[in-house]
Every structure is written in C-alpha cells, then in structure tokens.
Design a protein around this nucleic acid. Sequence first.
DNA 1: AATTAGCAGTCGAGAGAGGAGAGTGCTAAC
DNA 2: GTTAGCACTCTCCTCTCTCGACTGCTAATT
Lengths: 334, 334
Amino acid sequence: MDEKLTERKKRVLQALVDSYISSVEPISSSDIQKRYLPEVSTATIRSELSHLEEMGYLIQPHVSAGRVPSSKAYRYYVDNFIIDEDIDLDAMKEYLNRKYDSVAEIVKDGAKIVSDATNYTSLLMISSSDTLTIKDVKLVDMYDGSALVLIITDSGVIKDKEIKLPTSEENYIESANTLLGKCFAGRTLSQILSTHVDLDSELKAFKQIFEDVIDLLGEYKKSREGQLYVEGADKIFDYPESKNYDNVKNFMTIVGRKEKLKELMSDDGNIEFSVKIGAEEGAGLENMALVSAKYHIKGREVGQLGVIGPERMDYKKVLSVLKHLSKLIDKLDD
Amino acid sequence: MDEKLTERKKRVLQALVDSYISSVEPISSSDIQKRYLPEVSTATIRSELSHLEEMGYLIQPHVSAGRVPSSKAYRYYVDNFIIDEDIDLDAMKEYLNRKYDSVAEIVKDGAKIVSDATNYTSLLMISSSDTLTIKDVKLVDMYDGSALVLIITDSGVIKDKEIKLPTSEENYIESANTLLGKCFAGRTLSQILSTHVDLDSELKAFKQIFEDVIDLLGEYKKSREGQLYVEGADKIFDYPESKNYDNVKNFMTIVGRKEKLKELMSDDGNIEFSVKIGAEEGAGLENMALVSAKYHIKGREVGQLGVIGPERMDYKKVLSVLKHLSKLIDKLDD
DNA sequence: AATTAGCAGTCGAGAGAGGAGAGTGCTAAC
DNA sequence: GTTAGCACTCTCCTCTCTCGACTGCTAATT
C-alpha cells in the first residue's frame, strides 16, 4: 500500500497538501517553490508534480491550473505526515479546561465539544449494548396488583415497566426476585437474548414474568442499538467547499443518512482511530472525509466520536481533539 | 390585521399563491388568467396585481417579471384560504395505516413520520416536565449498603441512581420509603423544586436522602427540558429554493440552532397550531416557514411536532399531517 | 542523468455586446 | 370599470474577446 516515494517527492506532496489545506486553491509549482522548496527550480518541481500526477496522487483541474490532492494523497498524508508527536495535546487540554468545568460535562456534551473544538460537524455514536452485563433483575411491588420490573446493569437501571402480577400470593414477588436474579445476573444482554430459556415445569408460574423481562431486554437493545447524534451540521458553511451546490447536497444527504454513518463508523474491527477519505473503499464520501475514534469508560467500549467534513480537513487538529478527548474520557471514574 | 380585500382581489391572491407554490416561478397576469380567471382580461388582473403589490402582498423581482408572494401574502393565505374541510384527513390516515403497524410506532417515530409524510424537515420537541406528577418515590435495597432511588411518575420511572445508605439499620429503608412517599407523592416536578423543604429536626437522619432525591429531580428536569429532534434536514434539497446558496445556509443554520427553534416552537400561549412565516414578528425565518402543533397524550401536553421548510410550502398538506397525527396521538391509551 | 531557463500553448475567468423573450404600465377607447 | 394595444424595461443567454496563470517541452548547462 505504502508506495515508495523519493524523499523529494514526499516533500513536494506534503507541501502541496499543506498548501491546499490552507488555501483551498489549486497549487502551482511556484507556490511550492516559494514557500517550501526554494532550493530547486519550478521546472524541477513541475516534473515532480507531473510524476506524482501519473501515480495518482494529484489531479489537475485543467491544463493551465495548478494541482489539487486526490483522495490517495490525503490518505498518504494522514498515514505518513501526521505523527503523534505533532499533535498538540496540551493546547487541546487547555482549551477544554478553559471551556468546561468538569469531565462529566465533557462526556455528556461530547458531540458539541468536538464540533466546537474542531469547527467541523461531529458525530457521536453509542455502541450497541451487546456486552452490557445484567447485575440483577428486580420486581418492586406497587401494592395494586402490579409490579415494576427493574433491570439493573453495570451502567444503571435501563428499563422499567409495570406488569400485572398473575397472583397476589404473599411471597410471589420474593420468589420471583430470587429466580430472576439467578437466571439473569452476571450475563450479558446478547447472551440472554440468544439463548432460549426452558423453565422447569414446576416454575411455570413465573413463565409470564420471564417472558416479559426478556421482551423488555429486547426492546431496550433495539432502542439503544447504535444511536447516532449529529452536531453542527451547518459548520460546512464555514468552508469554501460549500460554495459548490453538489458538495453541500452530498454532505447534508450523508449526514442525514444515519444508517450509512453508523456503518461507516463501526466497521473496522479493532482500530482505535479510523480515517475514511473520499470515495475510497466504497465509502461514498466524495469530497468528504470522516475521522472517528472509539472511546471507553472504565475499559468498556461505550461509543465512538467522529468528525465529518471536507476531504481537505485539518486532520492534525481533528485527530488531536479526538485523541485527547478519548484519553480524557477513558480516565474517567465518575 | 385582516385587511378587507374585494372578492376578486382575494381570488387573484389565492390564485397567485397557489400557482407560485407549485411552480416556484414569478407568476404573470396571463398565468392567472389562463388557469384561474378566464372571465376577465389580463389588463384587469394586472391592475389588481399592482394594487395588491402596493398593499404589500406581492413582490416584483424586477419590472418585467411576474409577481411573487410576500410573507404577508402567505400569512393571508394560511389564515383565510386553508379551511379545515380542505384538509384531507382520510388520505393521511390511509397513508399512515399503510406505513405503520401500530400507533405506538407512530408516536415513537413521530419526527420521522412527519418528515416522510410531508417531505419537509420536521421538528419534535418534548415539553418541559413541569407538570409531571410524582406518584411515588421508592428506595430499593441493593443489599450492599446502598439503595437504588426510583422516582415513579405518571409517565414511568424517570431516574435511577444508587446512593449510599447512611446506616444499615434494619428498618431504615422502610421508614425512608414511607416518608418519601408522603413528601413527594402527588406533587408536580415544579412544585417540588420550587418549595424549600424543611425537615423536622427529628427526621434529620433522612436529610441526605431527601437532598439526593431533590437533586435527582433537578437533574432530570434539566436533562428533559425541551429536547429537540430534527429529522430530514436534507429534504430542503428536494426544493428549488435550495439552488440559492443563502437559502440553504440560512436554513441549515437555523436548523442547527436548537435554542432558537425551541423558542419559535414554544412561545404561543395556548394556540394548538402555530404558523410562523418569513421574517414576521422577528422570527428570523427569512424565506422559510415553521408550522407546529402541540400534542397530548391522555390530555397532558407532552410536546410539539413541527415542520420547517421553504416559505412557499404546501401548508395544506403540512397542516393536514400535523392535525391528523395530533388527533391520533391524543386518542392513544396504550 | 538531473536540473534549469525560456517560451509557446492551453485553458478558465471575466467583461462587454447584442438579441430574444417575457411581462409590465400606460393610454385611449368602449 | 374594463379592455386592447403598444412601447418600454429588464433578465437571460450566447458569443466573442482579452488577460493572466500555469503548464509542458526543448535545448542548454552542470
């Protein structure tokens, strides 16, 4: 994947992408010479440029224009020119400290913060709840022939529902509680939902309760399944890309297609940071890029935070914000 | 407010708005004659048009163009030409039945449905929870020195939190439950939060619990306070208005400003349906309009559903969808 | 073989001119 | 009050032209 480029080609490519990221105009050979490579002539740079174009890194809008990076160039740029040490975590930290009082606030408003700090549209996805572990299931007597079902998990009570009790026997609730606890406690949501529970015939009296509880879990899973929040969709208008109608339309369309976004954010196994650029890998992000990071609380993956914006985005800044935030959240212990 | 217009002026105005709503092009005198008033000459219509323009109902983009409705014209149109009988509730009902299995589904996906059915961007706002009534407050023993606080309201359990018990006395939880029930049951959220509770000195042992519960209620209120969901923001691209950069930018900006939208949706005392058009009343909706309706479940106001789109929107259709939906939801008794 | 200066060639952006078409306002007649 | 007729205005489109920005190529240089 990582094609070999001569040292000078690398410098030219980096110069071009850097320039383009800040100016958003096609970059000419003399632009590069002036600001990045004064020791060689524009003719030399031109020959390098045409070589890089042949290799697919650059695009020439028309013959008398400068060059613009292709998706392949952005990919190379992200993979090779952004090194961790570059990323200014301290500045980020300072920024966040200045703006937010507590870490809890930062998690809660994650999407807003990312959008503010990067000035791009941000995405917050809550992970599916497959690995959620049930701590206990309890019935709370409501003294009117019904009871409240509580499912207590390692991250709070997740669902409640009143159910009618089939009997008013004194100790029914107590027995049910014991039984429910035995069956569910310590197991994950997906374990429970994927196994079929066969009750001993003597426990038939609790059948209804069991089914109710399992229904509740199913409903909950469905309702939480990868919720996605979008913040700052209008940020695109801060960038000159938005002058182009199709760009804006594509952008807004994809930002509205939550299913597509979820797919884009979730399909890389165990990579912590993912960068999708342009139309590569069938991502369908023409002229756009999506950067996303998984985040954890107390070691458990709870979701992903991401940024979507023009292909020519400030990757350094975005990665810096996401990296720092994910560290911050991970350290969290409420 | 309702200026007196001659019968013919009304017809001309209605014809013009109708035409414009479907064609999105300036309407000429002959357009109106052909399709709406063949019994008079174009010259007559022209003189009516120039009169209506003087009165502020119409705008002429330039001297050799037709006319376009002003915000005032849309306002007049909505107030005078859309009568309830027009609204095709049956078609709406059929549409909803065809697409959704249950009413519950309709409520849950309210925003999506409105956006689909109208083909405009929809807004769903959940009402503030001031009138939420507490049915009971309970502590559930977790058998590890802590208890779970449950606040049961007329619309479900709203918050849970583990708190540490100050003592492990046998009957502490039971007494606390009784006391909490007495203090909170049957009162609304805002009543509780606005009064300062002074505990008898003998009940000091429960002080901490009380404060925790009140904190929880406050947090809950804050978290629910007018949440706003936007669905289908990209629908704007289905309309020719989106060809204009500023229109799109304004639209997206306002759709991103949730605070502003909440304000626009909530500030009319007890009107069930509200229509805001263009920049009138300082709404800041240049070239846009917002239609919203309150909705109730079992008589209690639970939120508002709305539509935001081009000023030239299909008011009939939008009002029809919102009206029907609100009736449907109100009848709900799950 | 790599680099460079010089130059011809290409293309887009923008300005200006001109013509067609649409729709109006006005006037005079009914 | 209504109408036909007509002159007038203004946008939109197309065509043409020029200017300027860059490039690619060639031939000379190191």
